[in-house]
Amino acid sequence: MARAIVLRQLTVAPRSRAQLEKKLRDRGCPDDVAGRVLDRMTEVGLVDDEAYAELLVRSRHSSRGLSRRALAQELRKQGIDKELADGALEQVGAAQERARAEELVARRLRTMHGLDADVQARRLAGMLARKGYSGDVAWPVIRDAIAGAAEHQRD
């Protein structure tokens, strides 16, 4: 039964060991049985927290634009060991994080024509904050983008 639950979960999407343990616990599976099944799944390579963490970091950074801080929180929430999480987060350097913040700001700024520069800055800062970007990253990117916007150029 536990093996079938794990296999069904893994066919839907990759999962961390902690997520699978929780699912088995929710389904009433004894901890010793769950441990043996998950150990076997790890041995054969079906459960791999390191690969899962790297996949999560890559996909969430590129698709949702999450910062390293938000990605670290996401990994903790998924039950990934801190050491594995730190290794996966090495994929996203400071330069990549800033570049992604610039892309997000540029895309959002295109939809804000006609708004006052202060309103644009406030909205952009809120958007970046929700994605986990610190003020040290966000504000220089926002200032540069607004200063470079054609509507704020002096004639």
Results as ranks from 00 to 15, higher is better:
A121V: 06
G35N: 14
L56E: 13
I142L: 01
D32V: 10
Q96K: 15
A138H: 05
L55E: 11
V47E: 00
A117D: 04
Y52I: 00
G79S: 10
L10E: 04
Q96W: 11
A88E: 03
Q91I: 09
R40T: 04
T42G: 13
K131T: 00
K23R: 10
G87E: 15
L115D: 13
R154M: 08
L38Y: 08
V137H: 00
S134T: 14
D49M: 02
D118V: 09
R68M: 02
A106N: 08
Q96V: 05
M1R: 12
A149K: 05
K22I: 02
Q96Y: 08
D32L: 13
S16K: 05
C29V: 12
H61W: 14
R17M: 04
Y52Q: 00
V33R: 14
Q78T: 06
R17W: 01
S16T: 11
R36L: 12
Q73K: 11
D31S: 11
G93W: 10
L24C: 09
R110S: 09
L24K: 01
W139M: 14
S67P: 06
L128K: 01
R27Y: 12
H152G: 03
R40Y: 07
D86G: 12
L55W: 14
A145V: 04
A99C: 02
G126F: 01
Q9R: 15
E103Y: 05
L20Y: 05
M41I: 02
V119Y: 02
Q78S: 09
G28N: 10
L55C: 13
R17L: 04
T42M: 03
M41P: 06
G28C: 06
A125W: 01
D81T: 04
A70C: 07
A4F: 14
M1I: 07
L128I: 02
R76V: 05
D136Q: 14
A101I: 01
R68Y: 02
R17K: 10
R76M: 10
D155R: 10
E103K: 12
A101W: 02
C29F: 08
E54L: 15
I80L: 10
Q91F: 12
D118E: 12
A13H: 11
D81K: 07
